[in-house]
Design a binder for these strands. Structure first.
Lengths: 340, 340
DNA sequence: TTGTAGGCGTTATCAC
DNA sequence: GTGATAACGCCTACAA
């Protein structure tokens, strides 16, 4: 009951050669029905399972993808992982999971590991650093798909994300249409396309309505830490504080909410709020939050589709950019600004 | 720029034999300082990375663990995954992630895959079914660690969990001490030790205070679906409805809250509430919830420690049961029962 | 201290 | 249809 059976054991048991066994296993050539039956039986009796490592060694690409996410404590990435795993399974792909914790150093470590070709492709949310390492991966002909965010200027990889510009414009426009003129924006860091594009959408909405942009109201903050609270406090302390804020950094939503609660800022009376990403609890709190919902299953579906296709070289080499629409959910955290 | 360098390329480049390269790589034998330097240089220049599959094939155990969780959409498991990945990295272990979605069939599929020995050990939250498959894994000498929950009667595997009996007793006792006498309990399914033990703790607390148990107030529900809402409704519709409820099924907390909100049940005025697991949003809602906080990092730490030690056969064969204490957090969802 | 050679478990290529 | 046999890339006796 110690060492597992090998293909040779099966062959011996079934009275055939290893090639026959291999053929019934992979359906890769003709086998006499009778022998096939014997082989199948032997496999069953021995509880034989082909060893993944051996298969990889002789074959082409591993049937495994690397999933390099920022941080599973963020429900957005957690749900993304959940869907990626599900999509991968339906394609008989394994998923090895790694996290960067938004730390470039950890990301580098992970990328280095990925270089050992234990995976046939990678889906990741880059920190925005380590550009050379990502490039090296791509150069090695390792399929790479960025999901949710990308690195500006790194063009040889596929990207799957929501329509960030559109979504931010919609969110901002919603507030403008309700009469807000001073609108704060708290995006993620600008190392990453997500932050950049959401700022762009915000600016577009302002421009379309002829509202001037005030630099003090656009405050990018890192994903990690609590600085979302600080910048909120700073904005609210301005001579002319914003009457509405778009929190376009999913990792900072909780921090911001907590700060507002502590500061006894009433929503939407004192401040209207739109947040990016619709968490499972977004409708449990008071008031339920107006949110941009990212279609996580679509993001997962396209990401896995892309790596999978590339792993089987089913795609022309030119990089793909898939953008899916996000949904704007109006709930109760936005209202007209208080007059006076 | 196509095919990656092999150990032989490095050897050639450095003017040494493969064994020397292997030795500097794994620090498994003596190497002349001069040659070592040449090898290192060659590795650098060629961007050489040993291929994981080949290494596994010749060596014994893969440096990879399987993590088979219920469902990453549940923040508890998501955070658990996050910590497991972190602990694994610090031990240079890879993590392949799979989910059961609480579906025995998916679990079986995953277990079957695990049988291909692509992993050296498994950490999992079993659905409660597929006992034979889990046993088969263990028989194959694959280290298996159940985390959070276990299967009663399956004794050859390690288990890491919180003190479920204690925690449930504390939660129930807290309510009893505040004067509640009719206390509802909504545990998970009884296929799993988590459900069983929490019921036991609940009963113990009642017994200690000489309060009779009412079967109608103990309503196990599956992790999936929305039945938590139904049983809540049923309990509240009793002639003598409970004045307090312990939701000991992390997956049903949200469902229950939503139902109570819709039913305009005021907490804690109409009903006191204690929930299992302290989610990141537990203190954002109104009122902040009294909760049993599971020390997720400890669960992760011990789980990874155990598989890792077993993979290196550092442990006597007898199964380990690690239980860590959970923390009871009193917040504002519990009060004395309304008199009259 | 170093190099040679055999083995790990599959798949794939060919003769038969 | 079938069965040897050579890869695949690395590790590790064992010999030098």
């Amino acid at each position: 009951m110690k060492k597992a059976a090998t293909i040779r054991d099966v062959a011996a048991r079934a009275g055939v050669s290893v090639s026959v066994v291999s053929r019934v296993l992979n359906d890769t050539g003709p086998v006499a029905p009778a022998k096939r039956a014997q082989v199948l039986e032997a496999i069953e009796e021995l509880g034989y399972r082909p060893k993944a490592a051996a298969r990889q060694l002789s074959q082409e690409r591993p049937d495994t993808i690397g999933l390099l996410l920022a941080d599973l404590a963020n429900p957005f990435f957690a749900r993304l992982a959940d869907r990626v795993v599900a999509e991968a399974r339906s394609r008989e792909l394994q998923v090895v999971l790694m996290t960067t914790q938004e730390d470039p150093h950890l990301e580098e470590q992970a990328l280095r590991t990925l270089l050992d070709r234990s995976v046939g492709g990678v889906i990741g949310t880059p920190t925005g650093h380590n550009v050379e390492h990502w490039e090296k991966l791509a150069k090695l002909e390792m399929p790479v798909v960025f999901v949710d965010r990308a690195i500006e200027g790194l063009d040889q990889v596929d990207v799957v994300s929501i329509e960030n510009v559109e979504s931010a414009a919609t969110a901002t426009g919603h507030l403008l249409d309700r009469g807000h003129r001073r609108i704060g924006l708290v995006p993620g860091p600008l190392d990453t396309t997500t932050g950049i594009e959401r700022v762009r959408g915000y600016e577009r909405a302002l421009a379309e309505r002829g509202v001037a942009r005030d630099d003090r109201l656009v405050r990018p903050v890192p994903f990690r830490g609590e600085s979302g609270a600080d910048v909120m406090a700073q904005m609210l302390a301005l001579d002319e504080p914003p009457t509405a804020v778009v929190v376009a950094n999913t990792a900072q939503v909780r921090v911001v909410l907590r700060m507002l609660a502590q500061g006894r800022v009433s929503i939407p009376d004192d401040l209207s709020l739109v947040v990016f990403d619709d968490n499972p609890w977004t409708d449990l709190i008071q008031p339920p939050l107006t949110a941009v919902r990212q279609p996580i299953d679509m993001l997962a579906l396209h990401s896995v589709d892309l790596v999978h296709a590339r792993m089987r070289q089913k795609l022309p080499p030119s990089p793909r950019r898939v953008r899916v629409a996000a949904e704007f959910l109006e709930r109760s955290s936005t209202a007209e600004p208080r007059t006076g």
